[in-house]
Computed example of a mutant assay.
Amino acid sequence: MKTATISQKDLETWAGFLLDHSLGGITPADRVMIKGERICWPLMEVLERRVIESGATPDVLLVPPNNDRGRVWSSAMGRTGTPKQIAAVPEWHKSRYESMTKYVEILGAEDPTQYMGLTPEQLGNLAGADRRFGDIRLSKSWVITLFPTEGMAKTEGMDLDDYADFIVRASTADPMPLKSAEEQLAPLFDAGQSVTIVTHHPIDDRELVLALDITPSRGVMSFGLRNFPDGEVFTSPDASKTAG
Rank of each mutant, 00 (worst) to 15 (best):
P65S: 14
N125S: 03
L212D: 09
E12Y: 11
G70M: 00
I26V: 12
P112I: 01
E91P: 01
M33I: 07
W142I: 02
S236T: 15
R218C: 11
D130N: 15
E110D: 15
V51N: 08
L61G: 00
D159I: 05
E12M: 03
W41N: 05
P90S: 06
P42K: 15
G108R: 01
Q184C: 07
M152Q: 10
P216E: 10
M116D: 15
S180E: 11
L185Q: 06
R131G: 05
L225F: 03
L212M: 14
R169K: 13
D174I: 03
T113D: 15
H93I: 02
S7A: 14
S22E: 02
L61R: 13
A211P: 00
V209A: 03
P216S: 13
G36F: 09
H201W: 06
A181I: 09
M33V: 02
N67F: 12
D68W: 12
T5W: 01
S74F: 12
K102W: 09
D20C: 09
A181C: 09
G55Q: 08
I6P: 03
P58W: 11
T145I: 11
T80Q: 13
I203H: 06
A153C: 07
Q193C: 01
L107F: 04
K154L: 12
P177F: 13
R226P: 01
L178S: 07
G117N: 10
M100K: 01
A29Y: 08
G36R: 01
T149Y: 08
Y163A: 03
E53Y: 01
H93P: 00
D174K: 05
V198M: 02
Q184R: 14
F147K: 08
R132C: 08
W14E: 03
R206A: 14
E183M: 08
G55T: 04
L225S: 10
I203C: 06
E121L: 15
K179T: 12
D20F: 00
T155R: 13
G151D: 11
P148H: 14
T27Q: 05
T199Q: 05
A127K: 15
G25Q: 07
F133V: 00
M158N: 01
N66D: 15
M221K: 14
L210C: 04
G36K: 09
I203K: 12
K154H: 13
N125M: 14
M152F: 03
R169S: 14
R169M: 01
G244N: 09
E150F: 06
P65K: 10
M1P: 08
D204H: 15
E150Q: 14
L123F: 00
M176Y: 08
P42E: 01
K102N: 04
P64R: 09
M116R: 12
L188G: 03
G224W: 10
E207T: 15
S99R: 12
R131K: 13
T3E: 12
N67Q: 09
V63R: 02
H93E: 10
R38Q: 10
P177Q: 12
D165R: 15
S99T: 04
G36T: 14
D165W: 00
S74G: 13
T149V: 07
T82I: 10
T199P: 01
A211T: 09
H200A: 05
T101H: 05
Q85D: 11
E45H: 12
V233I: 09
D162Y: 04
P202E: 10
T101N: 10
